[in-house]
Amino acid sequence: MSIQHFRVALIPFFAAFCLPVFAHPETLVKVKDAEDQLGARVGYIELDLNSGKILESFRPEERFPMMSTFKVLLCGAVLSRVDAGQEQLGRRIHYSQNDLVEYSPVTEKHLTDGMTVRELCSAAITMSDNTAANLLLTTIGGPKELTAFLHNMGDHVTRLDRWEPELNEAIPNDERDTTMPAAMATTLRKLLTGELLTLASRQQLIDWMEADKVAGPLLRSALPAGWFIADKSGAGERGSRGIIAALGPDGKPSRIVVIYTTGSQATMDERNRQIAEIGASLIKHW
């Protein structure tokens, strides 16, 4: 067993022997301040990774656009098919120029040779490549099948209805392509620590998230040296922004954090800054 596999296998073990965790309302004060600064709703939840206990939450059962955070769930569904012998990570998928959609920095470079399922998941999570996500959605049967996968996990809230990039439209009061912070946090925890996926697939999923290259201005910008984070960000229309993450000190994750916002007129930089400040408060009061 590799060191990384050992780390993920012992996530519940280490967490069980940690000192009790206590909620700190100071972080919620910052979440509410972010709402004021952005002029928009902000949803927040913080779960203990081992027990699933909610440590703090704000608007945990209000719907927010998922945006690209759905790509972690998508690759979880792909990995479940791999575990069941219905898919192979090494299978190569070929596609054409007509398949390319807006923001496809990886797939646009491989029109000639195609990409493997493993490479597509890596591109979808680490670079948020939209064509990679659409190609992977095709392998599982489309958005409705991802929703069905989530329902089978016990998540009857999260739903995907459309493809990239239309799913980022974020129309107010439109339930399409949305989740709730509580539902997303619980589902992410199941994917990373539950028995739904094999140990190898859980490790692969967290490795992809740990290698995320496009979430630097968010929670990662607030992390002290030595902290662990595996995350996936999302951005959408109407001032929408979000991030889902597993993080913790001492090089291992111990909490799940989900943050979503929508309806702001603020710039992307300002949305990023507010999420980073929430992260800084979380870490300060850990």
Rank of each mutant, 00 (worst) to 15 (best):
A200L: 10
S281G: 08
L74D: 00
P224A: 05
T158Y: 01
D231A: 06
L10E: 04
S80E: 11
N130K: 00
Q97W: 11
E62H: 08
I125H: 03
A215M: 03
N130C: 05
A16L: 15
W163K: 11
L111Q: 10
V214I: 07
Q97T: 13
G263V: 04
A185N: 01
F17A: 10
A16Q: 12
L223Q: 05
M127K: 08
G251W: 07
G154S: 08
K252L: 10
A182D: 10
H5M: 15
R189V: 09
P25A: 06
K53S: 13
I278S: 00
A215S: 09
S281Q: 13
I3Q: 11
D174M: 04
V8E: 10
L167F: 04
A276C: 11
G242C: 06
L191V: 09
P249C: 07
L74S: 03
D212Y: 03
R81G: 06
G154C: 06
M180E: 15
R255C: 03
W163H: 09
R189T: 10
G263M: 07
A124Q: 02
G43M: 00
G114V: 03
L49R: 03
T139V: 12
R41N: 10
H156W: 11
E102A: 13
I171Q: 15
Q265M: 12
S2D: 07
R91E: 06
L136P: 00
L120S: 03
P12D: 07
A245R: 00
E119D: 13
I243Q: 03
G248S: 03
G263H: 07
L49Y: 12
P172S: 12
G154H: 06
I93H: 05
W286K: 02
I45D: 02
Y95K: 01
V31D: 01
T261M: 15
R118Q: 13
N134F: 03
A9I: 12
T262N: 10
M66L: 12
E277H: 08
W286Y: 07
L247F: 05
A185K: 00
R91F: 06
A215Y: 04
E270Q: 12
E210Y: 10
L160P: 04
A148S: 15
G114R: 03
L150V: 12
E119F: 02
T131K: 02
H5V: 08
M184W: 01
G141V: 04
K284R: 14
A16P: 09
E56L: 08
G251I: 07
D129P: 00
G85A: 10
L38Y: 09
P143F: 03
A124L: 04
R238W: 10
M153K: 08
T147L: 07
N50A: 12
A280T: 11
R189S: 13
P20Q: 15
G114S: 05
Q86R: 12
I93A: 04
S122H: 12
G76Q: 01
V31Y: 01
R271D: 06
V78L: 07
M184I: 14
E61A: 12
P181I: 04
A23G: 14
P65C: 04
A280S: 14
E175C: 12
S104W: 01
A16C: 14
A225N: 15
S57F: 09
P25G: 08
R202C: 09
D207F: 10
L19K: 15
A222S: 14
M1N: 01
D269Q: 12
M67R: 01
G114E: 04
T107R: 01
T112M: 10
E145T: 11
I3S: 10
V31Q: 01
Q203W: 07
A222N: 14
N152P: 04
D250E: 14
A246R: 02
S233V: 03
P181F: 00
N50M: 15
L55D: 04
P253C: 11
L73T: 09
V8R: 12
D207M: 11
M268Q: 08
D155H: 01
R118Y: 15
E119A: 10
E108F: 08
L223S: 07
D83N: 04
E108H: 11
R202F: 03
A185I: 03
L120K: 00
L205R: 00
A34E: 03
T262Q: 02
I278Q: 00
G154N: 08
L167A: 08
E169C: 11
N134I: 04
G142I: 01
M115P: 01
G85P: 01
L218S: 03
S128V: 00
I275S: 01
T198N: 13
K144H: 09
A185V: 06
K109V: 12
T186P: 08
F6A: 07
E237H: 11
I259T: 03
A276N: 09
A222D: 09
K109D: 12
T69N: 02
G216Y: 08
P12E: 06
L196P: 13
D174F: 03
W286S: 01
E210V: 14
L218M: 10
A276D: 05
M66I: 11
R59E: 03
L47H: 03
F14E: 02
R202P: 01
R7L: 07
N134T: 05
A280E: 15
G251A: 12
E277F: 08
L19F: 15
F22Q: 12
M184G: 02
L167Y: 02
W286M: 07
W208Q: 03
K144D: 15
H156M: 08
A225Q: 15
T131P: 03
D250L: 12
F13D: 01
P12Q: 10
L19D: 10
T126L: 08
P165F: 05
D129R: 00
M1Q: 01
E277L: 11
F228Q: 06
A182K: 14
I140R: 02
R220P: 02
P224V: 04
A84T: 14
T27I: 09
G141H: 07
G85E: 11
Q37C: 11
P105H: 06
M268I: 10
D36T: 15
Y103H: 07
Y44P: 00
L135Y: 03
A170V: 14
R118N: 15
E61G: 15
R91Y: 06
T107L: 08
R241V: 04
Q265P: 11
G142E: 05
E237V: 10
L197S: 05
A9N: 09
A200G: 14
V29Y: 04
V21F: 06
T179L: 01
P217N: 11
V31R: 01
G141F: 04
D48W: 03
L146Y: 06
V8Q: 13
I171M: 15
A222K: 15
H24C: 08
Y103W: 15
E169W: 14
V29E: 14
D33A: 15
I206C: 13
E119V: 02
D161V: 06
A222W: 06
R159Y: 06
T261Q: 07
L197M: 09
Q204E: 14
I275H: 01
N173I: 09
L47W: 03
F228G: 05
R118W: 15
K190P: 03
L196A: 15
F64G: 00
A215G: 09
A40D: 05
E277S: 10
T126A: 10
V117Q: 03
T147K: 08
L111Y: 10
N168A: 08
R59T: 02
Q97F: 15
L196W: 14
G39E: 15
I54F: 12
Y95T: 03
K213R: 13
P12A: 13
M115F: 04
I171G: 14
C121E: 01
W286L: 04
Y44V: 07
C75I: 07
G85C: 08
T187S: 12
E35I: 03
R118G: 15
Y260I: 08
R238H: 15
A245F: 03
L38I: 10
T178I: 04
G248A: 03
A148G: 14
G239H: 04
H156A: 15
E237S: 15
K232S: 00
M209R: 00
D250K: 13
E164Y: 05
W286Q: 03
R241C: 04
T262M: 09
S96M: 10
Y103M: 06
I256T: 03
G234L: 01
